[in-house]
Write a protein that binds this DNA or RNA. Structure first.
Ligand code: MN
Ligand code: MN
Ligand code: ZN
Ligand code: ZN
Lengths: 143, 143
DNA sequence: TTTTATGTTGGATATAATCTAAAACGGTTT
DNA sequence: AAACCGTTTTAGATTATATCCAACATAAAA
């Protein structure tokens, strides 16, 4: 499914973000990308085609897009953070062994009882699954 | 509530970990500590009393304790990871503004439908709440 | 067109975490 | 109590990740 340039531009504008070639490139790449690339991978991919972006610009734009709620950042123990465009809602599965991040079909998560939140203001519940991905899971017992 | 040295030693042994003074000190500090310190904070706290530990040892032991399932690591976007001893089960609330990590009373989280996991092996579901902590939330409208 | 707040840049800097190889330790066996 | 050996600790170097900076460029508004 091709993505229409104007749709991305309107998405950015709708969040109060100017559409610069560099910012557009980051957003477009994340939208056409199924996986969860790191900032370094986005930097490399974006710079394979014009326009070129500096490393600082990649980080600046990722920060802006995350703040605007258009992109999600997944912090990883030790390793570089990973990013995805928030298309359809979904949860994440992180492999204990290879660190791969995979999407898991979304389902509603019950909120905590009001009492246990106190005066905190809840914005979102993030559900992360951990274990072994299909590639790292032991093969089905056989032979 | 004081923690009995032997209890910690037995906990370590039970996970196949030798009880060295340095490892003991990290575990004891995390157990008596209510918050979610960083490796640097643990390093500093442990070294205020004997025995002293090097930075590498703090990281080594945190890695071992996390692997053994005795300690939980909370990855933070950009900032240093935070750690806590897994006492009572609980969820985490992370403040958007100040980054503080707070415990939230545990409740059962529904697992994903078997179909959406495929051949993955699920080990745990981690539920993280985000928003504003009590200190950062706007004060109740008044004047 | 100007104007101006916003965005970009390369390089320097900061921060977090891991690696290294030598020395110390802690159980165990003679 | 001495020798032994796998584990642990250590200081410092190194790597990895992310942010800062100040000069310059530009998108969008006026
Ligand atoms: Mn995703
Ligand atoms: Mn906790
Ligand atoms: Zn895997
Ligand atoms: Zn806060």
């Amino acid at each position: 499914m091709a993505i229409y340039p104007d749709a991305i531009k309107r998405t950015l504008a709708g969040s109060g973000l100017r559409s610069t070639p560099q910012r557009y490139a980051v957003m477009a790449f994340l939208m056409e990308q199924a996986g969860h690339p790191t900032a370094a991978e986005i930097f490399e991919a974006v710079n394979r085609v014009d326009p070129r972006s500096s490393r600082a610009t990649i980080y600046n734009n990722l920060r802006d897009l995350v703040r605007a709620g258009l992109v999600r950042e997944v912090a990883m123990e030790g390793r570089a953070a990973r990013f995805d465009a928030r298309g359809m809602r979904h949860h994440h599965f992180i492999c204990d062994r290879c660190g791969n991040v995979e999407d898991v079909e979304w389902y509603k998560v019950p909120r905590p009882a009001a009492g246990s939140l106190g005066r905190r203001v809840l914005r979102e519940c993030e559900l992360i699954f951990r274990g072994l991905c299909a590639k790292c899971a032991p093969r089905r017992a056989s032979h």
